[in-house]
Nucleic acid binder design. Structure first.
Lengths: 92, 92
DNA sequence: CCACTATTTAGCGTGTATGCTAAATGTCAG
DNA sequence: CTGACATTTAGCATACACGCTAAATAGTGG
């Protein structure tokens, strides 16, 4: 699965977009628990969404004591912008 | 289904992204047949991909004789850029 | 070590996406 | 009007995404 594929697939689900937006708004980092609390979903459901984001390179995580802190990878989102740029360049 | 949902879902499939890129490269318009020829898929498969793009507002079509010509809606792609812009604005 | 907290992994059900083939629709050419 | 062309609609199979619950893992505090 190439990078575009992974990133666009990850962004396709509203829950995953909301995770990114909220994390960004919160400064770029949130614990797994804080992320899970945003939703009425069962925790494992959110865990999987987070994993999709992470394997797309849009998040990474770090252990802090007994909790896991996820960090947003803003650079990775640039991939989307790069893709969009093709449509601004007028073809010849 | 809101606009973001529709657009991001439409962009999630590689075939659909390729349709958009190729149409853009070709100047913004292509007949249904020309689009279908890009792929080894059966025509109806491509037809459905095109419909997903159209119902997301990323394409529109027009009849021209016995063929249908699809046009890319570049403006609609700006929605994605708008969404991405949230990540450039540093939160306070 | 035990109990508790934080979170993931495993495994299952269901609905939707995506591929196919066959049939229908619409348009033009003679 | 008829036949051929261009394309879609209908309907079916299969795979995967996404929800759930139950169990496992990892770290902390006493």
């Amino acid at each position: 699965m190439d990078a575009y594929e992974a990133v666009f697939t990850a962004l396709a689900h509203p829950v995953r977009r909301r995770i990114l937006l909220t994390m960004n708004f919160e400064g770029g980092s949130m614990s797994a628990g804080a992320i899970a609390e945003m939703f009425e979903h069962a925790w494992p459901t959110t865990t999987r969404h987070v994993q999709v984001l992470e394997s797309a390179g849009l998040l990474r995580h770090e252990r802090q004591g007994r909790s896991r802190v996820y960090h947003i990878e803003r650079k990775r989102l640039e991939l989307v912008r790069d893709w969009l740029d093709w449509f601004s360049k007028v073809p010849y």
